[in-house]
Every structure is written in structure tokens, then in C-alpha cells.
Amino acid sequence: MTRASDTAVLELEGVHRTYPGSPPVNALVGVDLRIEAGEMVAVVGPSGSGKSTLLNIMGTLDRPTEGRLLIEGTDTSKLSDRRLSGLRSARLGFVFQSFHLIETLSALDNVAAGLLYRGTSGRQRREMAQIALEKVGLGDRLHARPTKLSGGQRQRVAIARAIVAEPSLILADEPTGNLDTATGDGIVDLLKQLNADGSTIVVITHDADLAAQLPRQIEVRDGAVRQRAVDQ
């Protein structure tokens, strides 16, 4: 696929997100952000600063109260639920802190579910799922249920599910939050390797050391984004 080089994978323009209530919570206040293809970006900031809100808006799971989100040049603000869902199914991959695996399905079927809403045939889904699982180092646990896997292995399954449709952008909200340090490092290495292979990745983390390893860091504070210089 060839794209105009001036088109970012993702662009936020003046994004506000206010949760209604009394008083209303201004979770994001005027965020401008641009993510280029091939980047790997860390999102850091204190608890409650608005990191998850930012990521949900990037992933079209939530809509800005004000401002625009463009994904590969397309303004998402006017898209219907159907179109947004289609966009998620094709262009976005998610990794959650709590894995969100379906317990009754094998690792293979969990990963294949990443293609379910693309209309891909069952056979092809499984073939692609196997390739994705091999990529995350679980080629030997295709038929294991999530309950039979360790935390790190579960998160690898979730990552395989996020990459199986070959999305333009992978969004990970504290993917190591439920894992011990060593296991978490393994997950980070995997994400880095995926990035090295061409995936664009945004990852929220509380871990300053982890963030420091990444080429670009975005700090969120009280709903505002502050770009950080790359520490070398």
C-alpha cells in the first residue's frame, strides 16, 4: 500500500473530552498529536491524568467532546457506528491490561477472533491466527485454553490477536500492568520487535524505565499532552 508521505497514521486536533457529571471531569483538554507510521510511542503520566481516555479516543472506542481524530487521513468524527467498527476491524489492534481473552476458546480461536468481524473465512482465520501465534512465540500452544496459560502467555495471545489483521496502529493500555517485571520485559521486547518489523505502536505505561527505552514519549498531565525530548 502506498500512502502520501504527509499523511500520519493518526492525528488528533484540539481534542477535548469532558465526562458529564457534577462537576464535569475534563479528562482531556486540547490535545494535539500526530503519530507517524512505524513509530513506537510511550504514553506516561500519573494515574487519572487521562492516558486511557486518550487511548480510547485514538481507538475510536470513545469520541472527543470537541476536536477531531483522523486515522490515515480520514476524519472519524462524522463516521457512523458501522463505519467506525469497520475501521477498527481493519486498521486498529488493541491490547488490554486484563487481556480480555475468551476462556472457552483455545488460543488459536481467540486470535482468530481478531479477524471475525472482517468477514474472513474460518479456515483462513485459523491459518492467519497460527502465523500470528508463531510470531509471538506461542506456536506450540495453539490449542491451549487461556486458563492453562501463564499471564505472560495470555498477553502474548492478546498481542497475536491485535496483530492478526495487520492493523495500521496497535494501541496497548498498560499491557504489562498485570505482569511481574521479568514477564513484562518480555512483552515489551515483543512489542519492540513488532515495531522493528514495521508495526506502529502506542503503549501506555506506568513504568518509567520502560518508557525510557522507547524512542518517543508523550506525557499526559491533567488532560494535557506534553511531548518529552528523547532521553538518550
Binding site: D81, S85, F94, S98, I102, L116
Partner: peptide, 16 residues
């Protein structure tokens, strides 16, 4: 809820 959210993230529409 978690499963529903996941399916939405994977691209399920409200109709699905």
C-alpha cells in the same frame, strides 16, 4: 461487559 467491549474493539458493530 468485557467480552462485549473486546468484540466492539475487534470491529463488531452494535448490530453484531
Amino acid at each position: 461487559r468485557g467480552e462485549i467491549g473486546l468484540r466492539r474493539a475487534l470491529g463488531a458493530t452494535r448490530g453484531h
